[in-house]
């Protein structure tokens, strides 16, 4: 489904990503680990078409990443940013409707509400700024799913929230992968979460700390 071949990214002389090659199939959930600054977010941004690679070839469902085909590719991608990217002054409903209006897919209010309820986000009418961190993270994820992406790119989607919310999100994502065949790349620093959720783990960066940690725990790790 997603093929990445010999991907390079550098800013001037500073090489960030070097010769990265991997493939992803339908329903795969892949964890992406590495220390801060290793290039996880850059890789995710490149896959999300938010940044250009310096070299390399990327293909999603047979379409090559190219500026002419960007809008077709973007339709298939869901991106969950690390920041909580929602309108703070609007309610959950208004946020969902707002992005639905701009989205490629039209959805009824009911469908939108169900999307939220599926991940146990039930404060439909409440303004976002009154919600807990967990609720905000759920909404942050829900908005990215409105257009039913085939590839979901998550940049630390559960940072700083309670265990219960984390588990609710994780079980929702697992469902999404198995039932709808959505492929995911998941950045996190929480190794339990990674091991609980992911089928494979990619590690980038020079440091082998995460490598060892995960291998010791019996998780297979692929170095990119």
């Amino acid at each position: 489904m997603l093929q990445v071949e010999a991907l390079h990214k550098s800013y001037g002389n500073h090489v960030i990503l070097e010769d990265i090659t991997f493939t992803l199939e339908k329903g795969d959930i892949v964890g992406l680990v590495g220390e801060n600054g290793a290039g996880k977010s850059t890789l995710l941004h490149i896959l999300a078409t938010l940044q250009k690679p310096s070299k390399g070839k990327l293909t999603l469902n047979g379409m090559t990443y190219h500026w002419k085909s960007l809008s077709h590719i973007r339709r298939q991608i869901g991106f969950v940013p690390q920041e909580i990217a929602i309108w703070d002054h609007l309610t959950v409903e208004e946020n969902m409707v707002f992005f639905e209006k701009l989205s490629w897919k039209n959805k009824s209010k009911e469908e939108l509400q169900n999307l939220c309820l599926d991940m146990k986000l039930n404060r439909w009418k409440e303004p976002v700024h009154t919600l807990s961190g967990g609720m905000k993270r759920k909404l942050n994820l829900a908005i990215s799913l409105i257009h039913e992406p085939k590839l979901l790119l998550l940049d630390e989607p559960t940072v700083g929230i309670d265990l219960k919310s984390k588990q609710e999100i994780a079980s929702y994502l697992k469902d999404l992968a198995t039932k709808r065949g959505v492929a995911m790349i998941y950045i996190s620093h929480d190794m339990n979460e990674i091991m609980n959720l992911c089928d494979q783990v990619f590690c980038i960066g020079d440091d082998s700390f995460y490598d060892r940690l995960l291998t010791q725990a019996g998780q297979e790790v692929i170095r990119l």
Partner: peptide, 18 residues
């Protein structure tokens, strides 16, 4: 808001045209 604008990339409307 840079974070929210990133979202517009995955919608029908680019940030600028928004």
């Amino acid at each position: 808001n840079p974070a929210i604008l990133k979202r517009f990339v995955f919608t029908n409307v680019s940030p600028k045209s928004y």
